[in-house]
Amino acid sequence: MPASASTDPGEVSDLDLVKRSQAGDTRAFDVLVTRYRGRIYAMTYHLIQNETEAWDLAQEAFIKAWRALPSFKHDAGFYTWLYRIAHNVSYDWLRKKKIQGDGEFDDERTEHRVAAGAEATPKGDLAPDAAMRNAELGQRIQEAIAKLSPEHRQVIVLREVEGLAYEEIAALIPCSLGTVMSRLFYARKKLQEQLHDVYETSI
């Protein structure tokens, strides 16, 4: 499962903040929101591919977490627990959208105001043309992911972004281990088809 963010030695631990939040301390909960909002938002954004909806769903996840705090038993890390909530909120949204037949999943995709790829790539190390190609590749990848089905997008995000083990993905979805691997295979296959010009020329 995703690990908690590393904390500075002088930083208040998740455990302390959670206990204070469980006692009704909204300021302590605000610290937890600040600590994890970037990771939760990234997850919802990668799954939803819409900045506004991802923002709302990330917020919804924190609200649900607040309501569920009394039942949090500390047997799992707070972030792992929060992550499950955020994942379920986002995936439920995706499923509803699919049931409602709102069309292709890339219809309402909105580009994040920070260019795709910009945060994850080394800054200052690339020549301008290489940086541009890199940014374009990031954009292409985001567009390709937006065209995946919710199930395929889900396994890609859980594996490639969050780095979850197959067993963890199977437990979270939930489904069998074989299904996880099959979905990963076909999700990557579809991405490969959409990005064939990139990889056929570079390999």
Partner: peptide, 8 residues
């Protein structure tokens, strides 16, 4: 290209 953390 898929960052695990993004600015909100």
């Amino acid at each position: 290209h898929l960052p695990a953390e993004m600015p909100v």
